[in-house]
């Protein structure tokens, strides 16, 4: 019968479509889970905001450094000025990441438990950057990864089989010490389809811990601007 013949062919094609659907879902999972376009747009906006904020802070640091040299010149003549200068220097150092800081916040531990030779951090090293980005967007005041303070010139990039942070080699487990509003930070990273969901879909073990007292150590390098000169 003509009618049933058509259905058999449709069924055969449906088998092929079924295989295609499974292949597609498999490879999308391999890509690192589904990232909706809305989420991508949102992250782009966050990234741009971060860039602007970074520029502003960098300008702040430059002005403060100018202030320091100005106060140093004044120091010999006026003691009150010296005091104010010292306070300003300390505040500037806190913001720039040159002092050890302490406060409430969260500790995020990222690990990979299986010993099959696969390194999810090597495959998706950008996820660490995304996490820092999310934390900064959620108002984190100080972040360190495995004791490396994240400052505005810190890099997080795959170099060979390690991830370089502040020019130093790191491998998993990664411990993020974050000072900030505990509940805001937690909800920002635990958001549905958020950064920790993405990490878990990339086989990364995630543990988030709240703490009343977290220490974030200072940045151990120096910043020297060779090319950038403040505009007077």
């Amino acid at each position: 019968m003509n009618k049933s013949k058509g259905r058999v062919e449709i069924a055969m094609i449906c088998i092929i479509i079924g295989i295609m659907i499974v292949m597609q879902t498999k490879s999308i999972n391999n890509l690192g889970g589904l990232v909706t376009t809305q989420r991508a747009d949102q992250m782009l906006i966050e990234l741009n905001q971060m860039k602007r904020e970074n520029d502003r802070l960098q300008n702040n640091v430059i002005t403060l450094e100018n202030d320091i040299s100005f106060f140093e010149n004044e120091a010999s003549s006026n003691n009150a000025v010296v005091e104010k200068m010292l306070r300003d220097v300390d505040a500037a150092k806190d913001q720039a990441g040159f002092t050890d800081l302490e406060g409430p916040g969260i500790i995020i531990t990222l690990d990979y438990k299986d010993s099959d030779g696969y390194d999810p951090f090597q495959a998706n090293s950008v996820l660490l950057l995304f996490l820092v980005n999310e934390l900064n967007a959620a108002g984190a005041e100080a972040i360190s990864i495995n004791g490396e303070r994240i400052i505005n010139s810190s890099e997080i990039r795959l170099a060979g089989s390690h991830i370089n942070i502040n020019g130093k080699k790191n491998s998993y487990p990664y411990t993020f010490n974050v000072i900030g509003n505990t509940s805001t930070l937690k909800s920002a990273v635990n958001m549905r389809d958020g950064i920790l969901d993405i990490m878990e879909s990339n086989y990364i073990n995630v543990e988030v811990e709240e703490s009343e007292k977290i220490t974030v150590f200072k940045y151990n390098g120096t910043i020297n601007f060779k090319y950038a000169k403040p505009i007077k």
Binding site: I13, I15, I17, G18, V22, M23
Partner: peptide
């Protein structure tokens, strides 16, 4: 039915 068989095959 074909679709289900296909998904399982996949």
């Amino acid at each position: 039915l074909g679709l289900i068989i296909g998904v399982m095959l996949g």
